[in-house]
Amino acid sequence: MHMKLTLKIWRQEDKDSKGKFESYEVKINEHMSFLEMLDVLNQELIELKKDPVAFEHDCREGICGACGLVINGRPHGPLQGTTTCQLHMRHFKDGQTVWIEPYRAKAFPVIKDLVVDRSSFDRIVQAGGFISVGTGQAPDGNTIPIESDVVEKSMDAAACIGCGSCVAACPNGAAMLFTAAKVSHLGLLPQGKIEHHGRVATMVRQMDKEGFGNCSNIYACEAECPKEISVDTIAYLNRSYFGSTFMSDLSP
């Protein structure tokens, strides 16, 4: 089925310029993905020798975490547990107006149009989101048995794709779910326990330094996370943070 949509897209030349919404009409097919709909728009713009809409995307199968638009007020759009690239147009109505905005957070400055800079996430991981093991130092993989439930819980958190929709969804612009997911992934496993307290302290410190907000338990992040990562990870991070602040006598 063919459908016609009105798109209101945020256009912003670069980081420093002031952006505004532009209105576009597109005729599309309901089987297209949301990004393919933008491809169609861009083709038309290029044919008219106009500047195409910049948006970030890569794998288009919901795993790389590059895409992420705020569609009618919701990061990754209306479908639960789905990235923008996996969202198909059949979830929209013919004649609908669709507002498309970039992620908004101080720590995610706009680069152009719908593209934002998420390098702050990399720096949070660099602050301690790893296990310090050099290549070749590892003992046999079966040396430490791990309860399969524990691994599953760790994997639930490790599924984070680093898209930043948690920050975009949070009215406080907090990166707690992202940070908590990494802390939970590593901290729940025996391999990650050794550096756990130090990791929590340094990652949280970096998160604050990047200018992310504070968690006030609104849980909008959990609702918008395309990998449905639970806010239980945040409670785990909080518990660990108290532990590293008050219980541990090592200064990280």
Binding site: K106, S216, I218, A220
Partner: peptide
């Protein structure tokens, strides 16, 4: 702090899953 971190406001804002109370503490 949070207001500073939030950045520019969304034109359309529907905070899914968030209760009125949680957003307006």
């Amino acid at each position: 702090q949070n207001r500073k971190a939030k950045g520019q406001k969304y034109k359309i804002s529907t905070r899914a899953n968030a209760t009125f109370a949680s957003k307006n503490m």
